[in-house]
């Protein structure tokens, strides 16, 4: 589906909307970029978010929102082309490079981003951050997974429970 007012008509001036973070910072962004969010898309289609109004986002703080919008702005042109079936290999490689760098972030930022992507229903970003977490788990032993994801070492009781669970599924717990 084409994003609203993606440049044709209206003298080429892209429509802007304002988003307000939980800590009251206002972000002005092209409607096409904000519409990557399924949650915002309907409001924007109804003409909301323009002028002095702004759309309040009580669940997203300004640091996270600025990161989310960085993603949306980068991905909006491709999304406007319906997933960019005719994008060049160069464009796609550039988006991939951007994505890889984009999730190369501190874990606490990553988790805030996961929550924001989930609340705002931004499909591409949801997949990207989920894949990042999966990659953090992949190929690791149970202990390494715990340490990578910042869990403290288990107590002896927890350890015993885990052993039992793993053995139930045929896994030797190293």
């Amino acid at each position: 589906m084409a994003a609203p007012e993606s440049g044709d008509g209206n003298n080429g001036a892209a429509r802007m909307v304002t988003l307000i973070s939980s800590d009251n910072t206002r972000f002005e962004v092209e409607a096409a970029a904000a519409s990557l969010s399924q949650t915002l898309q309907l409001t924007i289609l109804d003409g909301g978010g323009g002028g002095g109004d702004g759309i309040p986002l009580p669940n997203v703080d300004s640091a996270t929102l600025s990161k989310v919008l960085e993603y949306c702005i980068k991905h909006a042109p491709a999304a406007a082309n319906g997933g960019a079936p005719n994008a060049t290999a160069v464009d796609r490689a550039e988006l991939e490079r951007f994505d890889n760098e984009f999730v190369n972030i501190d874990q606490s930022v990553l988790y805030s981003l996961i929550m924001a992507a989930h609340n705002l229903e931004i499909e591409g970003l949801q997949s990207l951050v989920a894949k990042k977490v999966a990659d953090m788990i992949k190929g690791k032993s149970p202990m390494e997974i715990r340490r990578t994801l910042g869990f403290p070492d288990p107590t002896p009781e927890e350890q015993a429970e885990m052993n039992a669970h793993m053995l139930e599924y045929g896994w030797a717990y190293e």
């Binding site: 977490v133 999966a134 992949k138 997974i145 715990r146 994801l149 885990m162 669970h165 793993m166 896994w171």
Partner: peptide, 21 residues
């Protein structure tokens, strides 16, 4: 459902290891 999304991306024998978390 967010955690399920992550787990769906892992092979089952790796997903089972997250029970240690």
């Amino acid at each position: 459902d967010v955690i399920h999304h992550v787990l769906s991306l892992l092979p089952a024998h790796e997903a089972v290891r997250t029970c240690v978390l």
